[in-house]
Write a protein that binds this DNA or RNA. Structure first.
Length: 938
RNA sequence: GCCCAGGUGGCGGAAUUGGUAUACGCGCUAGUCUUAGGAACUAGUGGAGCAAUCCUUGGAGGUUCGAGUCCUCUCCUGGGCACCA
């Protein structure tokens, strides 16, 4: 054809053709399998799309075209997440109504998207601000209210003074508003809250069934933060009581004080019993002033005040324990109070040291694993420290016998452990002038004594000495140890790297580093529970103390009201007589009133509160005077169920038809980035609720998640108007074409990885498409060479597998390799080139449809079947064998695939580059790896 | 501090899961064409060395005939959580 590759002309033309023939209309029914491919729908901001936005849409577009050509009914819709603060702020700034702004921005976004040639079925387009849509968002809220999952709360809420609204925990970045960066305040006000914590367990458990990236699942587990423990009740000497939450009820006998968070309610009740009330009040004031950042930024430096005059009573032994208030205990986690066990908790230890509180050890560590038929022994482990050069006395047994250890040895009967250690040190190393520093608790160590072939349990005591001087006596090694070890002085770094034995490194950590032992062990000084393992004791001590086992979460209930205009009105009426009355279902949707001023009132009330014509209503129950709820929903509401609406976007009677939902759900592949702990948790929560009330058929909405890595600007920063580094996809489409943009974005690197835009590199994909364009001149009737046939079959296989796995960069590379092969051929068989176009079609739909028609077809390539490959043609008749001598590659040769192992080995030895390295040497071994290489060992 | 990803040429990145490291693309070098610039095409391109050859996947050890891939330790980068009892 030799005409020019004019991308602008052909891309516009084909986009019109596709639209005219409605080829992207979703088909349903028949016996085809379904595939639901979903993009995270965008928020249509005033800035328009930058080149980072379409990355995910390109991927889902390619995937869905691929699935379509493989015989699936596909659902691939798009819509707009248009409620929320950013839209409102944009509107205020530009002095237009948010609805008008949204309409305008949506039009712009849609235009930009359509330039890239996506296969969305626009008949299913949805918009969260559409009254017909948010009717059902409100309906879901009413269902939650009905089931007791939505409730009013008066707890202080995170208030952003700049955005003028309360926020959910998920909307915070540390202690700042995630949107504007302003530090949030705690503000007491009435809130609507959703009981997401009721679903915490299921949200964690069902993660296992999802094909999601590990880091997203992990982020969710982390965010939900389940921890299992016990709730225990402590009485006090002023005849009050409080509960604590602990994950270590087994350490209860080791509690030496208790701590309440400074905000704890009981403190005010106890006012007259607290003798140092002034100090207490001063401390609480001080804490109140500190932001959470300050509280944590001070690191481990603990502060607090003792409550004079009151003691807590340990429920297991009736010991009276001092009570402190301290800000290291958080009001909103657990019960806002803890029992402190400095011996087995790092934070408690830091506090106890500062306030001179006793430390009581109740756990003897266990290391190693218990085995059958253990021999029991007592022993010591002695760490000797040379403080002159900060080194430690070590015995090196060599790699096979356990590497570096400290001095160890058996202890007879009731032998004093210090005397025993001194004796062992002198016998094995000769050093005799030592100063005893400290000793550890008993440590129970299980191991296999390989030299003797027996399992052992030893009860070890760690001892710590300082070297006084270098005087030594001659050593007296036991016969069986003679000459097997060397004595060394090793540095702290060596201790870390070389002392691998669990027991010996634990002794070092306890005695030299003074680390807290917070692991499992054997109970001691714990009354009748002494001798049990800590795991066994957890439950029994909890019961004995009258407590109960309990699970606690970091996840908080979802603060669901916003004091802003541009959101779904919460469909509730406050009646003077009846209290909270849900808006009857028949009255939905509760529409946002059209008003001139929708700016925040500044009083902490929603701007809707001032619109009396809207607010004042009659109670649906008693017809008395009532007012509408004026708070609106957060922007996460509409996005928590939108994927269901695409299935049945015009349904007037339900959010979604259950039969249709059964066919299309769950989403097979969900493509998007960010939102690991907000949208993706909220949507799972709503979905499970809808499942519970019978609206949907499955308990999880998104079967597989492909998490995309963002595209950074060329300067390595995020693309933003603020930095002036935004690249508009329209410009790229104009200059290089939509197909080039699509191929480039997929070729940049692994899909889930962050990548940097490069204006320089985009020429590669453009050249690639130009070559495809030109090569079509060579297509004609001709013989198919063996080489090309093999490569073609390999390409079909690789491209199909890699699209399925979202590995688009290697798909493109494989297509380039085949194209390079085409260039070497005189002519390319028509059937092969047609197959090539089909493989390329999902990536570059415009150019392939053009060339497809040039070849004389009048169908759309989108409706063609995906090429199949012939397994027997995947491997060529010849194979290339590498020859290694002592692991180094020395030669390669070609041989027929059916060559025998013997002949290949023999031939390999005769190659000059090989014999050069083997001549005059004894060949010890020849290894043949089938079809790969020959490895010769000399 | 804890958890999760990663570290491979000048750059973006491949590597069939233990078997010929650096595929593919960008860039660069030389040549052809062009009035010139650009574009296109051809050849070359990990590093050192005149060569034979040696070195090379953040670093140090180990297992193996053979390690980017497995094991142990360690350093660095990105992301999430962070006084969560």
């Amino acid at each position: 054809m030799t005409k020019e590759y004019n991308h602008s002309k052909i891309e516009k033309m084909w986009q019109h053709e596709w639209e005219k023939h409605e080829i992207y209309k979703t088909e349903e029914g028949g016996d085809k399998p379904k595939c639901y491919i979903l993009d995270m729908f965008p928020f249509p901001s005033g800035e328009g799309l930058h080149v980072g936005h379409p990355k995910g849409y390109i991927a889902s577009d390619i995937y869905s075209r691929f699935k379509k050509m493989n015989g699936y009914n596909i659902l691939h819709p798009m819509g707009w997440d248009a409620f929320g603060l950013p839209a409102e702020q944009y509107a205020i700034k530009n002095k237009i109504h948010p609805r008008v702004a949204v309409e305008k921005n949506v039009a712009r976004f849609k235009e930009q998207l359509s330039n890239i040639g996506f296969n969305y079925d626009w008949e299913r387009e949805i918009n969260t601000t559409d009254t017909k849509y948010y009717k059902w968002t409100q309906w879901i809220f009413l269902k939650m209210l009905e089931k007791g999952l939505a409730y009013e709360s008066f707890e202080p809420v995170n208030w952003c003074p700049s955005c003028q609204t309360g926020l959910a925990n998920e909307d915070l970045d540390g202690n700042s508003c995630e949107r504007c960066g302003t530090t949030v305040e705690k503000k007491p006000m009435r809130q609507w809250v959703l009981r997401i914590t009721d679903y915490a367990d299921r949200l964690i458990e069902d993660l296992d069934s999802l094909n999601w990236p590990n880091h997203v699942k992990e982020a969710q587990r982390n965010w939900i933060g389940r921890s299992e423990g016990a709730e225990l009740e402590f009485t006090t000497t002023n005849e009050s009581s409080f509960k604590v939450f602990t994950t270590r009820p087994d350490t209860l006998f080791g509690a030496t004080y208790v701590v309440l968070s400074p905000e704890h309610k009981l403190i005010d009740e106890w006012k007259r019993d607290i003798r140092n009330w002034n100090d207490v009040e001063a401390y609480r004031e001080e804490v109140k002033k500190k932001t959470e950042i300050e509280r944590t930024a001070e690191g481990k430096e603990k502060t607090g005040v003792k409550l004079e005059g009151i003691f807590a009573v340990n429920p297991v032994n009736k010991e009276e324990l001092p009570i402190f208030i301290a800000d290291y205990v958080l009001a909103h986690y657990g019960t806002g109070a803890i029992m402190a066990v400095p011996a087995h908790d790092e934070r408690d230890l830091a506090f106890a040291k500062k306030f001179d509180i006793p430390i009581k050890t109740v756990i003897e560590p266990i290391t190693g694993e218990k085995r059958e038929n253990e021999e029991f022994r007592k022993s010591i482990v002695a760490v000797v420290h040379n403080t002159m050069n900060d080194t430690f006395l070590s015995i090196n047994w060599g790699e096979k016998l356990g590497g570096n250890l400290f001095v160890g040895g058996g202890r007879e009967g009731d032998e004093d452990s210090i005397a025993c250690a001194l004796r062992e040190i002198e016998e094995e190393t000769g050093y005799k002038n030592l100063k005893f520093i400290s000793s550890s608790e008993k440590i129970h160590h299980h191991y296999i004594a390989h030299s003797k072939g027996v399992n052992r349990e030893i009860e070890a005591i760690g001892l710590y000495f300082e070297l006084i001087d270098n005087d030594t006596v001659s050593t007296q090694h036991e016969d069986d140890e003679k000459g097997k070890f060397t004595v060394e002085w090793i540095t702290r770094e060596d201790v870390r790297n070389k002392v691998k034995d669990e027991l010996h490194s634990l002794v070092f950590s306890r005695l030299v580093n003074n680390d807290v032992y917070s692991g499992p062990g054997i109970m001691k000084d714990s009354g009748e529970f002494s001798g049990l393992t800590s795991d066994e004791a957890k439950k029994s001590i909890t019961e004995f103390a009258g407590g109960k086992l309990k699970t606690t979460y970091k996840l908080r209930d979802w603060v669901f009201s916003r004091q802003r205009y541009w959101g779904e009105p919460i469909p509730v009426i406050h009646c003077e007589n009846c209290g909270v009355v849900p808006v009857p279902e028949k009255d939905l949707p509760v529409k946002l009133p059209d008003v001139d001023s929708y700016e925040p009132s500044g009083t902490g009330e929603s701007p809707l509160a001032n619109i009396h014509s809207w607010v004042d209503v009659k109670c649906p129950k008693c017809n008395g005077n009532a007012k509408r709820e004026t708070n609106t929903m957060p922007n996460w509401a509409g996005s928590s169920w939108y994927y269901l609406r695409y299935i049945d976007p015009r349904n007037q009677n339900a959010p979604v038809d259950k039969e249709k939902e059964k066919y299309w759900s769950p989403v097979d592949v969900y493509v998007g980035g960010d939102h690991a702990t907000r949208h993706l948790i909220y949507a799972r929560f709503w979905h499970k609720f809808l499942f519970d009330i019978g609206v949907v058929n499955y308990s999880e909405p998104f079967k597989r998640l492909e998490f995309l890595g963002n595209i950074l600007a060329e300067d390595g920063r995020k693309m933003s108007k603020r930095w002036g580094n935004v690249i508009n996809p329209d410009d790229i489409v104009n200059l290089y074409g939509a197909d080039t943009l699509r191929v480039y974005e997929m070729f940049m690197g692994p899909f889930d990885q962050t990548s940097t835009w490069s204006t320089e590199s985009i020429i590669g994909p453009r050249r690639f498409l130009e070559k495809v364009w030109k090569i079509s001149d060579k297509v004609g009737e001709c013989e198919l060479s063996n080489k090309l046939e093999t490569l073609y079959n390999q390409t079909i296989k690789k491209v199909g597998e890699d699209i399925e796995d979202f590995k688009f960069n290697t798909v493109i590379s494989k297509m380039m390799i085949l194209l390079n092969e085409f260039e070497k051929e005189e002519k390319i068989p028509v059937a092969i080139f047609e197959g090539y176009l089909k493989l390329l079609a999902p990536l570059a739909p415009h150019i392939t449809d053009e060339l497809w028609h040039e070849l004389g077809h009048n169908t759309f390539i989108y409706n063609e079947a995906w090429p199949t490959y012939d397994e027997s043609k995947i491997s060529s008749e010849m194979m290339t064998i590498g020859v290694q001598v002592n692991g180094k590659l020395r030669a390669t040769f070609e041989v027929a695939r059916n060559g025998s192992e013997e002949s290949i080995k023999e031939y390999a030895m005769t190659i000059p580059e090989v014999s050069k390295w083997t001549d005059g040497k004894e060949v010890k071994k020849i290894i043949y790896v089938k079809g790969k290489l020959v490895s010769i060992v000399v």
